[in-house]
Design a protein around this nucleic acid. Structure first.
Lengths: 230, 230
DNA sequence: CCGGATCCTATTGGATACTG
DNA sequence: CAGTATCCAATAGGATCCGG
């Protein structure tokens, strides 16, 4: 490995030598949602310089964490089985970091990939096991997600579709994800606004008032990445 | 936070802003074993420059992850409750990294703290639940550890004491920790050498032959940190 | 336009020396 | 022992450029 090593024979140091550099785990996080093209990764990591993205992709590939795969004339990057085994690491980091998250700042964006992984990190299989199979359309700030819960399995992915229930939330969903707020209380206090109906999407509704007005309309900053704006 | 941020509102980015810098998670790892003094941390992280250690301690303290605590005239650093919640992150990273670990290289050391956390990462509560309470003295390469298993609880700490069973292992213990090798096979193949007896310590035995000769004697490089030497 | 490579500057980390 | 201060090397950031 080209990366500077820690001079220690241990699992944590080895892991940090492979994925400890800046941006590396964020690339892995986005690829945990699915294979992505170079430009899609760049769009989801708004501040990454293109030379750093290229360098990380090269390093992660050399480490056997991801691979370049040609998909009908375009190249996508996808995790190897070993790379996918980083999912517990990313989920644990996300769950921990979510507790230290305050209100969104100006210039902080939410991407579909980041919100997808944040929701996965909040999923409690034991709780979900008692629920009937349900599909949700969620608008979490500016990201639109399709969520399916079936037994103790969770499927979250960016997008839309036919669902049983649609809901929209503001930035306070973080209190729900971090476990600070119970789901019933979230609905009762308006943190989560339930939009009933077996409809198609959530595009026929407005986000709850906790989102500032300027965040309501879709303000595309870059391909597929919207800013919560405040 | 002074650290450069990722411009994203998500749990993983927030976590990486707090503990994503070089050396930070290794300091947390060592403090998960117990409170440590500045010099003890420096000894356990052999290549860390003292200015970096000082800077990280300051940042981690500002982030509410650790605190300086006066203990009878000396200052120790200890994790806050929030800092201790990083344990799942460190264990997941260690378990993942262990699978990518090859044989120890020259100049790679093993510290009691690193080996303690590596063993914790390999602990399977469900398996241990069926075993009687037992205390082990383990010499893992150059580190001497006291291991107690009771029900589904594991207690690993650097040190020695009265035990039920003593054993010594070479670098191939990594195949045991990573799950590649079953315990019975490890003993059968000599990866783990069992030194029977309800004795006091493992100091009356030699490590298995898989450790190179020059590693057999205790070669203290720095306080409490020994090198496996190849 | 996508997928990078290159160049240059700004920031951070690393090694060593030094101090209360 | 518990850190600072200094200086230099390495890395990240930003802009631009290039080939398909």
């Amino acid at each position: 490995m080209a990366t500077r090593d820690y001079g220690q024979y241990s699992g944590v140091t080895r892991a940090l030598e492979l994925v400890g550099e800046r941006w590396a785990l964020l690339i892995v996080r986005d690829l945990l949602v699915g294979p992505r093209r170079y430009g899609e990764l760049a769009a989801g990591l708004p501040r990454i310089p293109s030379n750093i993205l290229a360098a990380r992709l090269k390093d992660l590939q050399a480490a056997g964490i991801l691979r370049r795969a040609p998909r009908s004339r375009v190249i996508v990057y996808e995790l190897t089985p070993y790379g996918r085994e980083l999912e517990p690491v990313v989920l644990a980091l996300g769950a921990w970091g979510y507790k230290a998250l305050g209100d969104p700042q100006e210039q902080q964006i939410i991407t579909p990939e980041s919100m997808t992984m944040d929701l996965r990190s909040a999923f409690r299989a034991d709780v979900a096991a008692g629920l009937p199979a349900t599909a949700y359309a969620a608008r979490v700030g500016p990201a639109e997600l399709l969520i399916r819960v079936d037994g103790s399995a969770l499927d979250v992915r960016p997008g839309d579709g036919l669902v049983d229930l649609a809901f929209a939330t503001g930035p306070d969903i973080r209190r729900l994800i971090s476990g600070e707020l119970a789901p019933e209380k979230a609905i009762a206090t308006g943190v989560v606004e339930v939009l009933r109906g077996r409809g198609s999407s959530s595009t026929d509704s407005r986000p709850p008032s906790t989102w500032p007005p300027e965040a309501r309309g879709p303000q595309r900053a870059r391909r597929g990445c919207l800013r919560p704006s405040m």
